[in-house]
């Protein structure tokens, strides 16, 4: 049964329909967990003894940073599948994830610097994690730029898949070298923003927010995939029929 499911998912029309049905579920799940996470994060979780209330930015910054890494890996895996098995739908997934991933990376950077200002006194600190996140943003922008530069969308998708694979191989190397580089110039005054050992009341909202961002990603990537499919299959019959129905 599973094989049949994946086999059917290969056809754009079937994928379009299934995605259409799944999006509302993802969206509802996202909204519920988001409200829950924000409620716990802002109201219930106690203030941090050292950072006071400013640590609450963590509830956006950390899940966004996790998502930026998670989405890049998902993109690389779907890139690999689309290169090896030439499945059109995974190609669509690669480019649909790129913009969401880039926005999460940007969000992680922005909230990181907003959090850094009260903590370290400046908007930008060449901290190892923030620098690695900045490079990850450039990788995402490279992927988006390459995809928009190539006219033929099939060629573009496969070129972008290769770039995502090359990128994912380089991410650990970049992280390791940035860590090495950072420990060399570690200014003594920077309080190492290590993973604070948090008790449950602080950790729970973080996990809820992480789950809610994942559901959000599920919804948005499927929405972008549907838009991409309609764009790609604009000449096929089923799109014409669908457009006529929708036009009525």
């Amino acid at each position: 049964m599973i094989v049949r499911f994946f086999h059917q998912m290969g056809s754009p029309r079937y994928f379009y329909g299934v995605a259409g049905k799944m999006i509302p579920w993802f969206m509802v799940g996202f909204l519920v967990t988001l409200l829950l996470g924000i409620y716990y994060g802002l109201f219930v979780a106690p203030a941090d003894y050292q950072q006071g209330e400013s640590y609450r930015i963590m509830y956006i910054h950390v899940p966004a940073a996790w998502m930026s890494m998670f989405i890049y890996v998902v993109m690389a895996v779907s890139g690999l599948i689309s290169l090896v098995w030439r499945i059109k739908m995974t190609e669509v997934m690669v480019i649909s994830s790129a913009t969401v991933g880039a926005s999460f990376t940007f969000l992680a950077l922005a909230t990181g610097s907003l959090w850094g200002k009260p903590m370290w006194g400046t908007w930008w600190v060449w901290d190892a994690r923030l620098t690695a996140e900045l490079l990850l943003l450039f990788l995402y922008l490279g992927i988006i730029a390459l995809h928009s530069a190539i006219e033929d969308k099939r060629v573009a998708a496969r070129a972008v898949s290769i770039l995502a694979l090359v990128g994912v191989v380089n991410i650990p190397i970049i992280h390791y070298s940035v860590e090495w580089w950072n420990t060399l110039h570690q200014p003594a005054s920077v309080t190492k923003l290590g993973k604070p050992s948090m008790d449950m009341s602080m950790l729970a909202p973080l996990l809820i927010m992480a789950i809610s961002f994942k559901l959000y990603y599920g919804a948005v990537v499927l929405m972008r995939a549907r838009a991409e499919i309609v764009e790609r299959e604009r000449n096929s019959r089923w799109v014409m029929e669908m457009v006529e129905q929708e036009a009525k």
Partner: peptide, 8 residues
Amino acid sequence: LVLPLYVP
């Protein structure tokens, strides 16, 4: 595309 990969 290439500069981020040159960083290491």
